[in-house]
């Protein structure tokens, strides 16, 4: 069907999506810049010199640097586990990825139920006589434990995304490669080290990028579990816009998220360039 129109069909089909995204992304980006940079004093300058910046940087880094490696490791082992065929596998698999359907706020509240002073864990331990007074996870004096609660929530809630990407990669590995490894006597660790990990490297890379960039946007668990004691980039945006009614400063924080996103994204792609042949 060679008609001149036919050549343009894909472009015509793609145009609405592209236009929509371009408007909803490019307009805000442009506007964020002007909101964040201009003003007296410039909100960006305000943010960069604010005493909160150090604290925000610390907690943002701390959460990302602990949560994501844990998720990658768990996801790799879970993927290995789910390569096994066993009865009830479908159900266990569904449960494992189910938190993907649960939003940040709900996940945070679920872990609040588990860990609060009158939560499952404390009541269980007290009623069985293991402890006499509740272990407090929340509140200003217990920021370390609050961070642990945030860690648990994030691992529980967002590991499925990492898992799905890595599992997809592992399913791509031909059974023959692993059977060949068996023939040559590699044990599980050696198979992981020399065959599986090199083959799924691109998937790990994808998972890292997607997960890190989404982690930069998490607000629910932090607001709900830590209130205002723990501050990260994303909570600052919401805080300044919704509670302090200051779009300028909110935009400046948002812009910072954007910059960090770009920076980390670029860094991952550079550092984890798939080695030749490992595709």
């Amino acid at each position: 069907m060679p008609s001149p129109l036919r050549k343009h069909i894909p472009y015509i089909l793609v145009a609405p999506s592209l236009a929509y995204l371009a408007f909803f992304i490019s307009y805000p980006i442009f506007y964020t810049f002007s909101l964040a940079l201009f003003g007296n004093p410039s909100p960006m300058v305000e943010v960069m010199t604010s005493p909160r910046l150090g604290e925000v940087a610390l907690y943002t880094t701390l959460i990302i640097a602990t949560v994501i490696p844990a998720q990658i490791v768990i996801a790799i082992f879970a993927s290995l586990f789910f390569l096994n065929r066993f009865r009830g596998r479908e159900l266990v698999l569904y449960l494992f990825i189910a938190p993907l359907a649960i939003n940040e706020v709900a996940a945070a509240l679920i872990w609040y139920t588990m860990l609060s002073s009158s939560g499952f864990l404390n009541k269980l331990l007290i009623n069985t006589g293991v402890i006499s007074a509740p272990i407090y996870f929340f509140g200003y004096e217990f920021i370390d434990r609050t961070l642990l609660a945030i860690f648990l929530t994030e691992v529980w809630r967002a590991t499925p995304i990492v898992f799905i990407i890595i599992y997809a990669g592992m399913q791509m590995i031909s059974r023959d490669y692993l059977e060949a490894a068996d023939v040559f006597g590699l044990n599980l660790w050696q198979k992981l080290r020399y065959i599986i990990l090199p083959l799924i490297k691109p998937y790990i890379q994808t998972a890292l990028i997607i997960r890190t960039l989404f982690a930069l946007q998490v607000v629910g668990p932090i607001f709900i579990l830590a209130g205002e004691y723990v501050r990260v980039l994303a909570t600052e945006v919401v805080y300044w816009y919704s509670m302090r009614l200051n779009p300028g400063v909110a935009s400046a924080w948002a812009l910072l998220i954007g910059l960090v996103t770009l920076l980390l994204g670029g860094l991952y792609i550079k550092l984890l360039r798939p080695s030749a042949g490992a595709t």
Partner: peptide
């Protein structure tokens, strides 16, 4: 341009929502 398009869409996927939301609220 199909591949660049896919890449661009992937990029849109990870744009921080906060960046989009504040200016859009003003608009």
């Amino acid at each position: 341009g199909r591949d660049s398009l896919k890449l661009a869409i992937l990029f849109f996927k990870v744009i921080p929502i906060a960046i989009m939301a504040v200016p859009l609220a003003v608009l």
